[in-house]
Design a protein around this nucleic acid. Structure first.
Lengths: 345, 345
DNA sequence: AGGTCGGTTGGGAGCGCTCCCAGACGTGAT
DNA sequence: ATCACGTCTGGGAGCGCTCCCAACCGACCT
C-alpha cells in the first residue's frame, strides 16, 4: 500500500525483473509458482514485487496464456424473481466465497431475452471465460447443450432430468420432501395432501416422489385427490389449496413444494376458517424469508444453498483443471436438506 | 479436442482482414465505428465478419487499448443478508439491463473480510476495471476515498452523508417517509410513532426527518417517546415496539423505517393484543416480500430499485466517458419513492 | 581431463488488438 | 502538367504476459 497510485503506469513484469536483477521468465515463474526456481532468486523476486507493488496485468496474461481466469454465473431472468430469496443471493454468496481463494473473477450474466442469450452464446463460443455456472436451467434450455458442444466446462444447479450430461450440483429434493411428510405423519396427521410444482420440472417430480415415498413407508393411503398441481407461485398455491379443500375436506396436513405456494395455501386455509396448525398442519420447501415471516411461522425444508454455490465452483474448477490435463472427470454432487421445524406443524 | 486450453480456431482480426481483402487497421476501424471508412469497404468488412463469425478478443483489445470494458459491482457482505430481497437482486437486474446494450461486462465482487477488501483495492488500483459500482457503503468505509484517490470512476448507491464527494444514486428517503406518515395522518391517526434505523446511517436520518416533516406539516405533537431506535433487524423492531408501547400505550400508528422491523413490530403488537390496522396502523419501508406476505399485508414505501440500478450504470458510464475526455461531470441522481397501500393501514 | 546430466536462467517469439503514421489516391487550384 | 490538400488505407510498433528453447552451471561420472 506504500506505492501511491500515481498516474504513471503500473509496474510491469519487465520492470520487476530489472529491479530484481533477473530475467522476465524468472519473474513469471515465481508468480505462477513454477517449481524450478532457486530459493534465493525467488526471495529476491518476491521482494521486488512487494516493493514495486506489482500486480499482474490480467489482460496480458489472458492474451498470452489463452485462458481468462474468469467464470460466468448465468441466471435466466425468470428466476431472479421467483428465486429471489434466499436462493439467488445464497448461491452468489457461496460462489463468491469459494472463489475468494482463487484469483478467478466472477462474471454475472442475466439472460432474459433470446437476444441476450445469443450474445452470451457468442461470448462463450469465443472462449471469453474459462467456465460457466448455470442456474436453474429449464428442460428446454439449449444452453447446456451448446456449452457441451463447444467443450466449455460448465456446472448446473439442479438438473433437467434424472440423467444429465453436464455436471450438476443438486440438493436431495426427494429426501427433503420425504422427511417433511414423515414429520407430518409423526405428528399424528393421517390425511396428508401435497401441492406440487409444475410436473415438467424435475425438482417438482422429486418432491412429489418424496411425498409418495413417505406415505408408502408409513402405510398410509395414497389418494390422488390429495395431490394438487401448483406452479411455484402464490396464486398457484391458492388455486391448488382450494382444489384440495373441495376434493378432500377432511385433510389435516399439507406439504407444499415451495414456501411461496405455502403462503398462498395458508391464505386460502384462513379464508376457509381452518386453523394452522390446529386443523391443518402446513409444511413448505426452501426455508425462505416468507417462511419465517408467515403466521404462524412455517415449517420448511432448508436447502444448503450457500454450500451448493461452493460445491458448484469446486466442481467447475475440477472440470476446468481436468480438461486441461486431458482428464474427463464428470462429478456431480447431491447435498442433503434439512427440515426446519416451526409452529405451522 | 486435443489440449482444450489451447486456442480453438476462432477467427482473428487478421483473418477477417484477409478474407475481406483489406488491412487490419480497416477492420479495426469498422468494428469500432471510426468515421473514415468508405461505405463500400465497410460493407465488405461487415460481411466478412458475419461470414467468419468473428468475435473480437477482449483480452487483446484490453491489452492494446488499456481499457477493460468491464465494471465491478461491489457488495459489502453484511448487506447481502439484510438487503437480500428485493434490493440486492433488484439492483443487479437494473444494472444488468442497462449494461445489456453496452458490451461491458459485469464483475461481481462480494467483500466480507478486510483481506478481501485489500484484494479488491489492489485490483482496482491496478486498473483492472473501468469503473466501480459501490452498494450501500457505510460511513466509515474507506473504499470510496480510495477510488477517489486513484481516480477510478465510481458511483455509490445511497450516500454516507448529505455531502458526498463521489457520485451517487439515491432515492428520496425523506419524501417517502413523509408520504407514509402523511398517509397515516390522513387516515385519522393522531399518535403516530416511528421505529428508526441506526442513527449513524444517513438513510435512517432521512427517514426520521421525513417523519418529523409530516408531523410538523400536520401540526401534530412531536413527542420523543414516539420515536424508538431500531437497527433494521427484526429483533430491533421488536425491541423498539415494546419500548414504544410502554412509553406511549395510546399510540395508534407506527411508521417503521424498514419492512423487516415492521415485521418485528407486528409480532409485538399481536402479543400485546393490538389489532392491525384497527388499533394500530402499520407502515413499513422497502416494499419487500416480507411486506406482501405479512398478515395483514403491509403498507410500505417502494423504492424504484431496478431504476436505481440503471441510473447507477448511466451515471458511471458518463463518468467514465467524461474522464476520458477530461471533463469532470459529477452528477448525482435522486429517484422518487412510492407508497404502496395495503391493509395494514 | 573431458563428458554428462539435472537444475536454473535469460530472452525471443508470439497472443490479437489498437494506435498512429506514412503512403495512395483523388480533387481542385495554379 | 504541377502542386497542395483532403480522404482512405495498410501495416509497423507496441500493450504485458506466457511459452519454450537454448545456454549456463556446478556436480558427478568415466
Amino acid at each position: 500500500m506504500t506505492v501511491s497510485g500515481r498516474r504513471g503506469r503500473r509496474p510491469t513484469l519487465e520492470q520487476v525483473a530489472a529491479y530484481a536483477g533477473v530475467g522476465r521468465g524468472t519473474v513469471s515463474r515465481v508468480i505462477n509458482g513454477a517449481a524450478n526456481v532457486s530459493d534465493q532468486t525467488r526471495t529476491a523476486v518476491q521482494r521486488a514485487i512487494a516493493e514495486l507493488g506489482y500486480v499482474p496485468n490480467r489482460a496480458a496474461r489472458a492474451l498470452a496464456a489463452g485462458s481468462t481466469d474468469a467464470i460466468a454465473l448465468v441466471i435466466p431472468e425468470a428466476e431472479t424473481r421467483l428465486f429471489a430469496e434466499p436462493y439467488f443471493s445464497g448461491i452468489i454468496r457461496g460462489v463468491s466465497t469459494e472463489l475468494a481463494d482463487t484469483d478467478m473473477q466472477l462474471l454475472l450474466t442475466l439472460i432474459r431475452t433470446p437476444k441476450e442469450r445469443d450474445r452470451f452464446a457468442q461470448y462463450v463460443t469465443a472462449h471469453r471465460v474459462d467456465g460457466v455456472l448455470l442456474l436453474s436451467v429449464h428442460a428446454d434450455d439449449p444452453l447446456p447443450d451448446l456449452l457441451q458442444e463447444i467443450e466449455m466446462p460448465a456446472v448446473l444447479s439442479g438438473r433437467r432430468g434424472g440423467e444429465e450430461p453436464v455436471p450438476y450440483v443438486d440438493c436431495d429434493n426427494t429426501g427433503g420432501a420425504q422427511a417433511a411428510v414423515e414429520h407430518l405423519i409423526g405428528r399424528g396427521r393421517r390425511a396428508v395432501a401435497t401441492v406440487t410444482g409444475p410436473p415438467d420440472m424435475y425438482v417438482a417430480q422429486c418432491r412429489l416422489q418424496g411425498y409418495r415415498d413417505a406415505l408408502r413407508a408409513a402405510g398410509l393411503e395414497e389418494d390422488e385427490r390429495l395431490v394438487a398441481e401448483g406452479d411455484f407461485t402464490e396464486e398457484g398455491g391458492r388455486r391448488a389449496m382450494r382444489e384440495l379443500l373441495s376434493a378432500r375436506p377432511d385433510l389435516d396436513a399439507v406439504f407444499c413444494a415451495s414456501d411461496v405456494m405455502a403462503a398462498g395455501a395458508r391464505a386460502v386455509l384462513r379464508e376457509a376458517g381452518r386453523r394452522v396448525p390446529d386443523d391443518v398442519a402446513l409444511v413448505g420447501f426452501d426455508d425462505s424469508a416468507v417462511a419465517r415471516h408467515m403466521d404462524p411461522p412455517l415449517t420448511s425444508v432448508r436447502q444448503p444453498i450457500e454450500e451448493m454455490g461452493r460445491a458448484m465452483v469446486r466442481v467447475l474448477l475440477e472440470e476446468i483443471a481436468g480438461r486441461k490435463e486431458g482428464r474427463d472427470g464428470r462429478s456431480n454432487r447431491v447435498l442433503p436438506t434439512e427440515l426446519v421445524r416451526r409452529s405451522s406443524s
